[in-house]
Design a protein around this nucleic acid. Sequence first.
DNA 1: AGGCATATTCTAAATTATTGAACATCTTGC
DNA 2: GCAAGATGTTCAATAATTTAGAATATGCCT
Lengths: 335, 335
Amino acid sequence: MPALSLDALELIQIVAREGSFTRAAARLGKAPSAVTYAVRKLEEDLDVLVFDRRGYRAQLTPAGRVLLDEGRLLLEDAARIEAVVRQAERGWEPTLRIALDATLPFDWLVEHLGAWDAAGCPTQLRIGSEALGGTWDALVDDRADLVIGAAGDPPSAHAISIQPLFEVEFVFAIAPHHPLAQAREPLSSAERLAHRAIAVADSSRRLPAQSSGLLLGQPTLVVPTMEAKLELQRRGLGVGYLPRWLAAPLIARGELIAREVDEAKPTAHLLVGWRSARRGGQPGRALAWWRERLRGARPPASLDSASPVVGSIKAARSRRSGHGASARRSGRPAR
Amino acid sequence: MPALSLDALELIQIVAREGSFTRAAARLGKAPSAVTYAVRKLEEDLDVLVFDRRGYRAQLTPAGRVLLDEGRLLLEDAARIEAVVRQAERGWEPTLRIALDATLPFDWLVEHLGAWDAAGCPTQLRIGSEALGGTWDALVDDRADLVIGAAGDPPSAHAISIQPLFEVEFVFAIAPHHPLAQAREPLSSAERLAHRAIAVADSSRRLPAQSSGLLLGQPTLVVPTMEAKLELQRRGLGVGYLPRWLAAPLIARGELIAREVDEAKPTAHLLVGWRSARRGGQPGRALAWWRERLRGARPPASLDSASPVVGSIKAARSRRSGHGASARRSGRPAR
DNA sequence: AGGCATATTCTAAATTATTGAACATCTTGC
DNA sequence: GCAAGATGTTCAATAATTTAGAATATGCCT
């Protein structure tokens, strides 16, 4: 059993603030002797002298000052817990950890985050990024409560619920100066096998790692993010599939070219997933909000592939660079 | 006043662990009705249902689970505070923040850290690095409790105590291929003024920034650490004073040369400093330990300037690189 | 259904917190 | 130096709270 008590901690905050036992008692609407009694009890429980009473007025001892300072933080935490618990009773999770699949840029999420913000939900969001099997892995491993944009089947035997998000097409994209740009379409596996592939690293920690769109024995460069993959392929340092919406603007500008292949990577059906059957009844309201919100979600737009709207070149540029920066900001998942 | 109480928090930990009110009561050596009463009181205080009693055995509600999880952390904090306060009564500060002046490498401190470790003191150390006036600034600004290696006078009117550490000589060091290497000694201010100086940035945040060994109007490149300054001067990208012990090995190897100047930077008397007159009596024991320890401290040795001891070239190399790595590890001060 | 375990309710008892007055100590103003 | 005003303590009485124990109701298990 803790020797400390929050009430005692609060009391010495008030004593320290008021500067005397008597005034603290007045502030609390109690008799001075009650304060004496409470302080003495704290000191006995703790077996530590908190106030030095040799002088006229009680003075904090060094240990007392430590208790005061540390106690303040503890009281703040306690108050925070009270609030969080009250919200929990109304159905709001304390935090909701979202894992965003690498297929989707952070920017895509921003619009939804705006709506979330406007809704004024008390739940704290924590957004991470995962790739390939790592997205499901995050769910199974309890690093995330909601995954957005996972591809492929969820691991079975893990009580996971899903709903469809949308479909994403992939294109086999290479730099115009890449040797494969000269080959006749469709590109065969044998031709592709000879060139280095760029792959996004699977971020799984429990489930076995996967790869996607790679050929057995193909030299591969593994990068941590989709942005890195895009950049390397743009520079001709390797080849591979890219989401169409991501590659489209570069293809339009001629920085990348799409190539037909014999066995095209099939369209990915992205999913939203969460652990089903939360113990103790209904899922949280924050999770429910996001499920509902994502029911009508649309794929990322290819920002500058659309027919040019009115606006300066500078605006278009900033739109482009804005995308890159935000996507980078999404960063690696927290450990 | 907090509605929460640590005892109640502890109680629900035990109930959750034991799985029933009755067993929790047995574990606590109390009657079951006492547990019922305590839980009910917690729920009333908090105005939150913690257990669902509709079924046979009491089940945690979702809000109860949040309280359980968050409460566990709070209890751990409370226990930590108890320990820290008990140590505070024995004179140990909870933490001691040391600011090491950029003149001294982190490596120099390591030997003393070993002794500290061996002494088994319960105080937590936090080591940061500061430069020039920033060292005193850290003390005045309460970002550090003890500064090591500060040069110059401590700011007056700030109740700071000092003791001498040791003296450090400086040499005006340049790369052998630097234009100034051809000039006749002693180098005049006018000659030096024409060449870029490398300076370590003052890390002050409150006190006015200083510079040291610079000439008015001299082009200057400011770098964050002494290591960066050394490296730039070694490459001939600028000139300036370096601690003799730091420059000596490079001078011995011919990578730097020392040059006489007309107005040499005077030998620096490094100091150890701390805020005097801690409220409530004696200074902490951790601070006292360091003051005593540093009373007999010796300046950093120039690792490979000493006559070569028995040992392979490889060992000498690793000694060198070890130094660089450790110094870098000391990093920037925490915000 | 019967045995067992669980949680609650209720009252009396035990423990703990609070009061108010008397007292000692210290500061302050004169 | 001394009285007035604060401060903190002590102590016995009182109030509030927690606890125990028995009685009761309910659900699980076989």
